[in-house]
Design a protein around this nucleic acid. Sequence first.
DNA 1: TCAATTCCCTAGTAATTTACTAAGTTATAA
DNA 2: TTATAACTTAGTAAATTACTAGGGAATTGA
Lengths: 157, 157
Amino acid sequence: MRLSTKGRYAVTAMLDLALNGQDGPVTLADISENQGISLSYLEQLFAALRAKKLVRGVRGPGGGYFLGREADEISIANIICAVDEWVEFTRCQGKQDCRGGQRCLTHSLWDDLSRQIYDFLEEITLADLVERGRNSDAGCHKHKDEDLLDEMTGKAA
Amino acid sequence: MRLSTKGRYAVTAMLDLALNGQDGPVTLADISENQGISLSYLEQLFAALRAKKLVRGVRGPGGGYFLGREADEISIANIICAVDEWVEFTRCQGKQDCRGGQRCLTHSLWDDLSRQIYDFLEEITLADLVERGRNSDAGCHKHKDEDLLDEMTGKAA
DNA sequence: TCAATTCCCTAGTAATTTACTAAGTTATAA
DNA sequence: TTATAACTTAGTAAATTACTAGGGAATTGA
């Protein structure tokens, strides 16, 4: 699978929508300013999100975007797939050097892992994230990520 | 977080090592041929893996690479972090438009999600994947991924 | 009806990343 | 001493990311 900054922008924007779309539509200009993403880039991302019916646009003054369905019906996997064209790209076609070949084995192991990650992200919805934000005092606590960074970047020998 | 084809190459190569490194070191030339990855690109990836002690190189004829530690001590997160320089890049520094600002809230929500994904990948080891390969007849079954693809790419309305 | 607003669409492009080629140097086994 | 294979650096084509520019189409309100 694939999880890039592009997917992050999309999730962030959708979160913004979920948080602010309660009373009326949210404009891309607002999201652009809120999240520090260029307006035109947002328009591209929302074209993809709209194509997958994850958002619904309303034109004209007072217009903007709504979520395309309830926040608990939109998974993180949905959002990332919409903008990142998550295609399966490792698939030996059953021919070639496939019998007993190592290549196919590792590929299918990767495919399994890829699927697991997908299933995991499929379980997390926008509503979950919003809920999480409500429970913590999330606004702007400085979290001590130094430990996390150490843990991530190595030394876990 | 970040999960790209580069990380996939690294995981695939490490899997190859785990599968074939039982009796003697594995050369990059072998992995290159097995997995269809260019030799020089592998050398770049292994430079990063070596820096994080995930692999150990042996020079000279009969040389090659070993895993740097036991397969059950190497997580998928370890591998991806080694080659993808997974840095936290969304962190409002507690200043700026942070009080009550939406930007910080969505950023911290994304950070939480990012951490969750990391924890998930941290739980899966190379040994797990190898074990999974042993249990299935994994060599080269054609799996019907069309359903999966449908599921991934939309229509989940 | 008209003007402002906002979504919507296309084309182009700088910056970055990916994946690779090329051309070496260094250590080691035979 | 020679072949092997790890190591290293530099350069580069292709793809992706993120953005700019310049429109058009629908809708609201004056």
